[in-house]
Simulated assay, not measured.
Amino acid sequence: MPPLEGPERAIAWGERCRHQLVTAAYEALVVEGVLAEGDWLAVEQQLRTLDKASWWIDQRESAPADLPELAAAATSADRVNENPN
């Protein structure tokens, strides 16, 4: 995942939230759910564009299985860079 943008304290918290949410979403959707690995890769690519720490912090209480829908609903305001590495 690309580095997050934001204030220093928010970056550390955002990275922790992102790791926990993405890990839990993979578990819920791929390991225990019905999403194929290839479909997960498409979700992961979309998640890579969400590089604002504040977005991940705001989503920390969300259900992991909702992550693809939340990412799809994100706007350009939730992204610093539309084309992350």
Score class of each variant (00 low, 15 high):
P3R: 13
P3S: 15
P3F: 08
L4Y: 02
L4P: 02
L4K: 01
L4W: 01
E5W: 12
G6M: 09
G6I: 06
G6K: 01
P7T: 13
P7H: 14
E8K: 09
E8M: 10
R9Q: 15
R9M: 13
A10D: 12
I11R: 04
I11M: 10
A12C: 09
W13I: 10
G14Y: 02
E15P: 05
R16N: 14
C17D: 02
R18P: 02
Q20A: 14
Q20H: 12
L21R: 02
L21C: 09
V22N: 02
V22P: 01
V22Q: 03
T23L: 07
T23F: 04
A24E: 01
A24N: 05
A24F: 03
A24H: 07
A24V: 06
A25G: 00
A25T: 01
A25S: 06
Y26F: 15
Y26L: 11
Y26T: 09
E27D: 13
A28L: 07
L29G: 02
L29W: 01
V30I: 10
V30R: 03
V31L: 15
E32T: 04
G33E: 09
V34R: 15
V34C: 11
V34P: 04
L35S: 04
L35N: 04
L35I: 14
L35A: 06
L35E: 08
A36T: 14
A36P: 10
G38R: 11
W40M: 04
W40V: 04
W40R: 02
L41C: 09
L41E: 14
A42G: 00
A42Q: 09
V43M: 06
V43C: 07
Q45D: 11
Q45R: 15
Q45V: 10
Q46L: 13
L47R: 01
R48Q: 11
R48T: 09
T49S: 06
T49D: 00
T49W: 05
D51G: 05
D51Y: 03
K52S: 05
K52Q: 14
A53V: 04
A53I: 03
S54D: 15
S54H: 12
W55N: 03
W55K: 02
W56P: 01
W56G: 01
W56K: 01
I57P: 05
I57N: 03
I57H: 04
I57K: 05
R60N: 06
R60K: 08
R60A: 11
R60H: 08
E61A: 13
E61V: 13
E61C: 07
S62W: 02
A63K: 15
A63H: 12
P64K: 05
A65H: 09
A65F: 09
A65K: 06
A65I: 13
A65V: 15
A65E: 10
L67P: 00
P68E: 07
P68F: 04
L70F: 05
L70A: 00
L70I: 05
L70C: 00
L70H: 07
A71V: 08
A71C: 01
A71F: 04
A73V: 01
A73H: 04
A73Q: 09
A73W: 03
A73L: 10
A74P: 06
A74H: 02
A77G: 15
D78T: 04
D78A: 08
R79K: 13
R79E: 11
V80H: 11
V80M: 10
N81K: 13
N81L: 12
E82C: 00
N83M: 09
N83H: 11
N83I: 12
P84Q: 04
N85S: 11
N85C: 08
